[in-house]
Amino acid sequence: MSAETTELDSPTRQARRSRAVLLLVAAVLAAADLILKAVAEALLSTGATTDLGPINIRLLYNRGVAFSLGADLSPWIVITATGLIIAALTWYTVSSAPSMTGLSRAGAAMLLGGAVGNFIDRLDGQGVVDYLHSGWFPTFNLADVFVTTGVALLVLGTIFPRRTRNDH
């Protein structure tokens, strides 16, 4: 193998690696979210509430999307719409991953992981398990934290692009 071939393969390998890492991190985050939701359901299904100061842990189900919007819609409509959005989001993040900054890739992985975690949770038709309640903000879950933080990191990584060694 010549040095020319190795140089040509290197960007391709790096692109594949950045895509694979993004998808792997998203899958791990989605799994962590789903595990915590299962634990919350198991421990809080009796109506128990745990007070942790600024946050209470209590079980609620969100049949809609963000802030319970669309809660009156049929579950299959919400599932179909969110599935299409996640498919588009996955295509965008996977195709863009090689050109993203590390911060943007981290944000994209968090956004995708949170979206997939909530989507999988929604598939049973019962709605998304929410368990973090502040009293002044709608009840949410770890996937919601991933989505919100992921969007912020994705935007920040886009606003502040990576610097090369020649930039001053």
Score class of each variant (00 low, 15 high):
L69K: 11
A3T: 04
R58Q: 14
A32T: 10
G107D: 09
L34C: 11
L34F: 14
D9E: 10
S2L: 01
L111A: 02
E41Y: 00
W91F: 12
A109N: 01
V78E: 02
A20R: 09
T82E: 05
T5C: 00
V78S: 04
L29S: 05
A31V: 13
A3L: 09
V78F: 05
T80L: 14
G64L: 04
R16A: 14
G53E: 03
L84A: 14
A27E: 08
Y92N: 07
L22N: 00
V39P: 00
I35K: 03
S74K: 10
G113P: 11
A48V: 01
A15H: 06
S18H: 14
T80R: 04
A15C: 03
T90V: 05
T93E: 05
R16N: 14
D72S: 05
T12K: 14
A20N: 03
S45N: 14
Y92W: 15
A88H: 08
L84G: 15
I55E: 00
V39D: 04
L111R: 00
A15M: 03
I57G: 01
K37F: 06
I57T: 01
A88V: 08
A38M: 11
A109H: 00
M110F: 15
L112T: 11
V65Y: 05
A3Y: 07
A27Y: 11
D51K: 05
G102N: 11
V78G: 08
